[in-house]
């Protein structure tokens, strides 16, 4: 054990705060090292001197002041405790009063609520069939619908062609336009065929707020089938 370590442990040694093995080593070191022994003796002397210095007694004046203050504080505390007790008592009474006031209402209120729920469930169940049954003449709730192609007779040599058709409020074709990428010769022939076909096509007019109105519809004709897109 070196001197630095011993000097670091001297204070704890004085207070008996080191383990036995360290204590034995330290005692051995103190027997042989004058410097550490001197420090140890010095610390013992300091500790003894400190303990020997008498503590001044509390004088009569301070003692009286403390007692007087204690008496005042005790009275103050009692007032606080009394006030808290009063508040607690008042709170308890109010709670009891409120509880007594609400109890007679509790059963009727709960019964009324339960009855209302039961009635609502029963009535809504019986109304379910009536609400879901469709009625003739019902107007769809959607605000606007587009014109629809009902039927057509088209015989064209082209594989596929898109035609935009203007349908009036009575479902009649009032105008149509062909794609611009068709050459002029084919265009004339095609215009004639499409025009003929559209004469025999039936459309459902577009609607706004349930009322028929004119509107464009795009019709895709194919050799074997046709698609209609609004």
């Amino acid at each position: 054990m070196d001197c630095l370590h011993v000097q670091w442990m001297l204070s704890a040694f004085l207070d008996g705060r080191i383990v036995d093995s360290e204590k034995r080593s330290l005692e051995e070191h103190l027997k042989t090292c004058a410097e550490c022994g001197g420090r140890h003796a010095g610390m013992v002397a300091v500790q003894t001197t400190l303990r020997d210095v008498p503590v001044r007694k509390v004088d009569r004046h301070l003692s009286l002041s403390l007692r007087s203050m204690a008496s005042r504080e005790a009275a103050r505390r009692r007032r606080q405790v009394d006030f808290r007790a009063k508040v607690h008592d008042l709170t308890g009474r109010l709670s009891f009063w409120a509880s007594g006031l609400m109890k007679p209402l509790a059963l009727p209120a709960a019964g009324g609520l339960a009855t209302a729920v039961l009635l609502f469930v029963a009535v809504m169940t019986s109304f379910q069939g009536i609400i879901s049954a469709p009625q003739p003449g019902d107007v769809p709730t959607v605000l606007a619908t587009e014109a629809l192609l009902k039927s057509t007779l088209l015989d064209t040599a082209l594989e596929e062609i898109n035609v935009e058709v203007l349908v009036d409020e009575q479902g009649r074709v009032t105008d149509y336009s062909l794609p611009k990428d068709i050459d002029m010769a084919a265009r004339q022939e095609l215009k004639r065929e499409i025009g003929k076909s559209l004469l025999f096509s039936k459309f459902q007019p577009a609607t706004t707020f349930g009322q028929p109105t004119s509107g464009w519809v795009r019709v895709k004709f194919r050799r074997t089938q046709l698609e209609v897109r609004g």
Binding site: S63, L66, R67, A70, S71, E73, A74, A75, R76, R77, R78, R79, Q80, V81
Partner: peptide, 13 residues
């Protein structure tokens, strides 16, 4: 002390 007992205050002092 919490209940304001004067004896407890005296004792503490």
């Amino acid at each position: 002390l919490r209940s304001g007992d004067e004896t407890a205050y005296e004792l503490l002092i």
